[in-house]
Structure formats: C-alpha cells, structure tokens
C-alpha cells in the first residue's frame, strides 16, 4: 500500500509522517501529481492560513487533482477546512468537497472564549468508519481559530461554546479538525482506521 502526504506550504507534515512511522507505515511526502494520483491513500495535512494555502494549491493545479481523487483522502486541520466550500479566513473560496462553510470562532462575551482553541477537547456523535473502536467522548488535540459549521457531511461534533464539526465525510473524502497525529493512542487509532478503509 502506498500512502502519500500532500506537500504544500503548510506545516506539521513531519508530525504526520512520524505518526505513520509509529504504526509501521512509510508516508511519502510529495507534490508530484502523478504520485498523488497513483497512491492508495492520500493525507492532506495543514497548519497555516487558508488563502495562501489555496493560492499555492491552485498555482500547482493541485486543487483540481485533489477534487478528482477516487481513493480515500484524509484532510487534517487546515486540510479539512480547505476541503469545505468557503472559509471566512481572508474570504477564501475552497475546494467545495464538503457541504460546509468555515467560520471564525467568536467569543459571545469578552475573554470567555480564547482564540485559537488550543488543547484537548472531546468528539461526540461519531458516525464514520474513521471512529471504529474510538469511544464517544474521546479526547483529541485541537489548535484552530476557524471551524466548519454543522452540516450534512458532519460525522463528529465538538463543543467550544458552540457545537461545531470536528469531522466530515463524503464519498471517499474524510476530514478531521483535530490533529490525530498528536492525539496519543486514540488519534493513532483514527489514522489506522483511515489506512484500513
């Protein structure tokens, strides 16, 4: 099985590669279109800013390549957000794979909500093969200022004053807002579940 990690101008690629290595999988980091198309599994990671990341993908025509993939694709954090329709982060048109829009967290009262949300939060209403043997209310590591609103493709919900989408699934596309590569044993389980699809 060949697993690729899409290389673009976003961080945390090394962490994803090491998380794969810990479960005995060699993740190939590449922005080569043919290599991405030929892979069995594609991981689309990301920490960074939406408009810059989208511009980079478009410039290399990776936007269309990702949309056209037929094998299982897992977007992580910004990667997941870029697979949504639109992001409020610098008013960015995204890939439009998931039927969700990305909004900015807003504190209803000053300082009630620290932004970005940094830390461990639980995931609930789990409805995806990604969460096989992952109990309801498992804790995952989140770092984000923007979130995907609840929608038809939502397969996990997290609460940070409001309920928002912590995982999405549509056809062969999967997305998680948290960082499974940094979420201890439960996160590792989710990566394994994805690789076993």
């Amino acid at each position: 099985m060949k697993t690729v990690i899409v290389k673009y101008n976003a961080g945390n690629i090394r962490s994803v590669q090491f998380a794969l290595e810990r479960i005995g999988v060699n993740g190939i980091v590449t922005d080569n279109v043919e290599e991405i198309r030929a892979a069995d599994k594609v991981i689309f990671p990301g920490v960074g800013e939406a408009s810059t990341a989208m511009a980079y993908l478009k410039e290399r025509r990776l936007d269309q390549v990702i949309k056209d993939l037929k094998q299982p694709v897992l977007g992580i954090c910004l990667g997941m957000q870029l697979m949504c329709k639109h992001s409020e982060e610098n008013d960015t048109e995204c890939l439009g794979i998931f039927d969700s829009n990305v909004k900015k967290f807003e504190s209803p009262v000053a300082n009630l909500l620290k932004i970005p949300q940094i830390g461990w939060n639980n995931i609930t209403n789990l409805h995806s093969v990604l969460f096989e043997h992952v109990p309801e209310n498992s804790y995952m590591y989140f770092v984000h200022s923007y979130y995907a609103a609840l929608g038809a493709d939502t397969v996990a919900i997290t609460n940070y004053v409001i309920n928002y989408t912590s995982a999405l699934q549509k056809d062969n596309f999967y997305g998680v807002q948290f960082h499974p590569e940094k979420s201890a044993a439960a996160g590792s389980r989710i990566i394994e579940n994805f690789l076993n699809i």
């Binding site: 090394r14 962490s15 090491f18 998380a19 290595e21 810990r22 590591y141 770092v143 960082h179 590569e181 940094k182 979420s183 201890a184 044993a185 996160g187 590792s188």
Partner: peptide, 11 residues
C-alpha cells in the same frame, strides 16, 4: 527534536 517527534505522540 526530531527524535522526540518520532517517539512522542502528543504536542
């Protein structure tokens, strides 16, 4: 740091 990242599964 590389070795820590390789072995530690939390931030």
């Amino acid at each position: 740091v590389t070795e820590i990242a390789r072995h530690v599964n939390i931030p």
